[in-house]
């Protein structure tokens, strides 16, 4: 395959960026999107140019490191992570636009790499449980009803890649935050911090400068893990409940 790539190049956080055009040849349809970018970078290095910086780690679709907005879609045309997107999803001779996640809470560090530490701070605000350390507890000590376990797992699938923020026209982190809150709030292990978790995580989300939800559904469409839009409804419900409960104290 021969492709024309239009890639966002930006030297550093303070520099102005722009789209640069590159031609790549000899791309196999079986390559992943990141392997295609590796091919481009090898060529760039060979010509003494600066390779395109992009985030990646496990390349198995489970770590949430890879990003990229490909032809306007977070993680590209398939519902998966960029590392699991294959070049067979494109046609020979295509022009592909590659851009970084866009949100003021995710500033560009270089080229296609953005700073997603805002997500870490949301997690630090309440995305954890308090548990004694030591050996793993006996599995039957805390029974979890099957529907609750399924609900928790569906939300626990979130890998924190930030595609929801990238896809949202308001740069909102609602889907990410709601996935984390729903995951822990439904479980008995998460019950002690149920109220403070949702209040603190939502407050931190606002603090980071993410936008609000207008329920366009773009986040859930882009999510490589299929976190449902209803997750946000669940977070709203938890937030209202916690607000009522805390105000009574």
């Amino acid at each position: 395959m021969k492709l024309t790539l239009r890639v966002w190049r930006q030297k550093n956080a303070d520099a102005d960026g722009a789209m640069s055009t590159y031609e790549v040849d000899g791309i196999s349809p079986d390559m992943s999107f990141l392997e295609m970018l590796d091919t481009l970078n090898e060529e760039l290095i060979l010509h003494g140019e600066d390779p395109v910086a992009f985030d990646h780690d496990c390349r198995e679709g489970i770590c949430g490191a890879c990003s990229l907005v490909i032809n306007g879609d977070a993680h590209g045309p398939e519902r998966t992570t960029t590392c699991q997107l294959h070049m067979r999803s494109f046609e020979d001779g295509d022009t592909i636009d590659i851009e970084p996640w866009r949100a003021s809470a995710f500033p560009v560090i270089k080229d296609l790499v953005v700073d997603r530490s805002a997500f870490d701070r949301i997690i630090q605000a309440g995305g954890y449980i308090t548990a004694p350390t030591g050996a793993a507890p006996e599995a039957h000590a805390t029974p979890v009803p099957k529907p609750d376990a399924d609900f928790a797992f569906e939300h626990a699938e979130c890998i924190g890649c930030g595609a929801c923020v990238a896809a949202c026209p308001n740069g909102a982190a609602m889907l990410f935050t709601s996935a984390k809150i729903n995951h822990l709030n439904v479980l008995p292990q998460g019950a002690p911090e149920r109220e403070t978790r949702v209040l603190d995580m939502v407050a931190q989300m606002d603090e980071e400068g993410f936008g609000g939800c207008t329920l366009t559904g773009e986040c859930a469409t882009a999510c490589p893990k299929g976190i449902p839009l209803m997750s946000i409804t669940g977070m709203n419900k938890e937030w209202l409940r916690a607000t009522r409960k805390v105000s009574k104290r």
Binding site: D73, E99, N170, L215, T216
Partner: peptide, 23 residues
Amino acid sequence: RRDIRARPSKYVHKRPRASYATR
């Protein structure tokens, strides 16, 4: 105002987003 501040730079590659009622 908050939403616009949260997404100051637009994507170069445009595509139609959301339903007419939503937009």
